[in-house]
């Protein structure tokens, strides 16, 4: 089996988050990560990124940090809702 380059390996690290790698790909990657410090660190970082984004994706429902809807926008939206709500009664 031809050895993977770091370029090949890094792409597989990313694709492993998207699809199930084939048998050869999986073993090629495992072998490469075993001998390559850079790619091993890269893989950890890409996994950390995924974990961080998952956390971020779920945060909206409870989180109170970050920018608020501006008072002007709140007014505007409140009016639009009241108006539409009035019509439906």
């Amino acid at each position: 089996m031809k050895m993977l380059t770091c370029k090949d390996a890094s792409r597989l690290v990313s694709e492993a988050q998207e699809r199930r790698l084939g048998f050869r790909e999986r073993w090629g990657l495992r072998l490469h990560l075993w001998i390559c410090d850079n790619c091993r660190r890269f893989e950890r970082q890409i996994r950390l990124l995924r974990r961080a984004l998952r956390t971020l994706a779920r945060r909206a429902e409870t989180d109170t940090q970050g920018p608020d809807l501006s008072p002007a926008a709140q007014d505007r939206i409140r009016k639009a809702v009241a108006e539409r709500d009035g019509h439906s009664h």
Partner: peptide
């Protein structure tokens, strides 16, 4: 009820 939606959820939805 809808008259409280903006106060209760406006900013959370905005951030999302």
């Amino acid at each position: 009820s809808p008259e409280h939606w903006v106060d209760e959820h406006g900013s959370a939805l905005y951030r999302y």
